[in-house]
Amino acid sequence: MHRFGQICGALSGAAFSLMLACCAAYAGQTHQVIIQKFEFVPANLTIKRGDTVEFVNKDIAPHTASEESDFLWDTGELVRNQSARIEFTKAGTSKYFCVFHPHMKAEIIVTAN
C-alpha cells in the first residue's frame, strides 16, 4: 500500500488501529531524492519501513519515479521543481525508473525496523 502523503486517514477499523500502533511506535522520517541531469540522486537509498521519500525534479525535462515491476507506486509526471512524496510501508527493495526516460534507474531499500 503506497500512497501520496498520509495513508492512515484512508484506513478504518482494524486496519486503522494496526496502523496507529505502527505509527506510534515509529514516526517515519522524510528523505529526499533529487532528480537532476537525468539521474536520481542518491541512486541507492536505504530507509526504514514507515519512512517517506520526497522526489524533487530539478531538470527542465519532466520525469517520473515509477516502481519498475508493476507500478506499485508512481509519482506521476513531475515538472521542473515539482515534488511528490511516497510513503513506504513494506520492507523490501523497490527498483524504480522514469517512464519517459527508461534508462534512468535507481532503487530504494526499505528495512524492517
Binding site: I60, A61, P62, F100
Partner: peptide, 14 residues
C-alpha cells in the same frame, strides 16, 4: 516522439 514533444516543449517554455 512523445518524449520529444514533452521535453522540447518544456525547454522552449523556459
Amino acid at each position: 516522439a512523445s518524449v520529444m514533444i514533452r521535453d522540447h516543449s518544456a525547454v522552449n517554455d523556459e
